[in-house]
Design a protein around this nucleic acid. Structure first.
Lengths: 225, 225
DNA sequence: GATAGAGTACTTGTATACAAGTTAAACATG
DNA sequence: CATGTTTAACTTGTATACAAGTACTCTATC
């Protein structure tokens, strides 16, 4: 487990949740790894209570499997859950980006402009992790522009399954294409061109679909079944 | 707060979650009511820990507002959250029912047949609460037929906001129409008729939209803004 | 009577103690 | 050597104690 520095403002519970979550997505906590409340509590320097609450929440999202009195484990990557996550994106992301076409105001557009520009900047300097964060943020901004922020929070949880595959595919999928997709999405939103938006979201998603089979072949021990 | 009997199998945490959730949806815990961990723990006969975990989870779903060191309150009905819930249903329910048209197998259909038949039976005997439960179950069965059960669990949380409005509208919306909608949906799934499915879901949802304004006028103290 | 302040009774957040159950290794026994 | 048993070290679930902060009430003071 990799160390995550605690922000002075956040509660112990939020800290534990963020730390565990990031470690799972980054695969520093590998799929199948055991994860004990006491162990994590000791590592993070907090008590069991906030750690337990964080683990319960991730258990609810099915990225941690909790077996009472036996132990808890980082869930193996379940292809059917990845598929559900992809299905949600394919339907909800499209509906939301279309809504954004209708009701996004200039400030929303401005924030997206800043975000995509930064992505293009970091593409030059080759900072993959920065682009990763900006990627998440870009999609959040679209949901915010469509006034669907609660749906985005909900989306985040199931997206964890997708995110682990994304982490594994970071080396193969070209950041160039991703940033290019985002630029095109932004321009389509500005033009209120829903048809193009829909096509772009579908193309964007298909990029990850291609290499899932390759990844599964490369890391079979991470996958369920 | 109304009493809910603890099932012998479930943990204290699950019991607390179910009890609080049912009380919020039924409006026995009114929007705006204060809800103390100690109070609930005493009422349910368990300790603070499982109650706290349940409240945290409902806080995550935004149906309970938690103010540290000050208290927790049942959230007022937030129209923008109800709108997000409706938006999710309009997009996801349609996509899922279309998927069900494609891949539902005979056992899935059979379960839905049973369910709708029961709805029609209880319509005769006028058991509104039975229909209420069967309604939830029917939609869950559609998600199960489309192999999207995790998405349904996710849907349930945000649907809590919608459910409270539904509880208020139970007296005005005719159960006859709801059960009729379900029967038509089932027939459309059997016929693999996606267009009809889409239209039915939209019509089904519109039934609740009509009376939200009336309800808001009748119970202004339950609503935010 | 109005007002400032101390105190008390709450709240949630966190830590810790105990309960119940699982697992695996050590060990005695055949 | 094989096998059944015991024991010890873990796990999560629950209860409780304590910490930190809020809000209201009662009281003293002007």
């Amino acid at each position: 487990m990799r160390e995550i520095t605690k922000l002075p403002t956040e509660t112990a519970r939020d800290y534990a949740l963020r730390a565990i979550r990031e470690n799972i997505v980054s695969l520093d906590l590998e799929p199948g790894a055991s994860i004990s409340e006491n162990e994590v509590a000791g590592f993070l320097g907090v008590s069991r209570t906030p750690v337990r609450e964080a683990i319960q929440e991730l258990g609810k999202a099915a990225v941690i499997e909790i077996y009472p009195q036996r132990g808890s484990y980082v869930a193996l990557i379940d292809s059917s859950l990845v598929e559900e996550a992809r299905f949600l994106r394919k339907t909800l992301d499209i509906a939301v980006i279309e809504e954004a076409c209708d009701i996004a105001d200039p400030e929303d557009i401005e924030k997206m402009e800043e975000n995509v520009s930064l992505q293009e900047f970091y593409l030059q300097s080759g900072s993959a992790d920065k682009i990763y964060m900006l990627d998440d943020d870009f999609h959040r901004l679209i949901y915010a522009a469509a006034k669907k922020e609660t749906l985005h929070a909900m989306r985040s949880n199931i997206m964890l399954h997708f995110d682990r595959v994304r982490t594994l595919s970071m080396k193969t999928v070209k950041d160039t294409k991703i940033v290019g997709d985002h630029r095109q999405m932004l321009e389509a939103i500005k033009a209120k061109d829903k048809d193009t938006c829909r096509q772009l979201v579908e193309k964007h998603l298909s990029r990850y679909h291609v290499d899932e089979t390759e990844i599964r072949a490369a890391y079979p021990q991470y996958f369920k079944d």
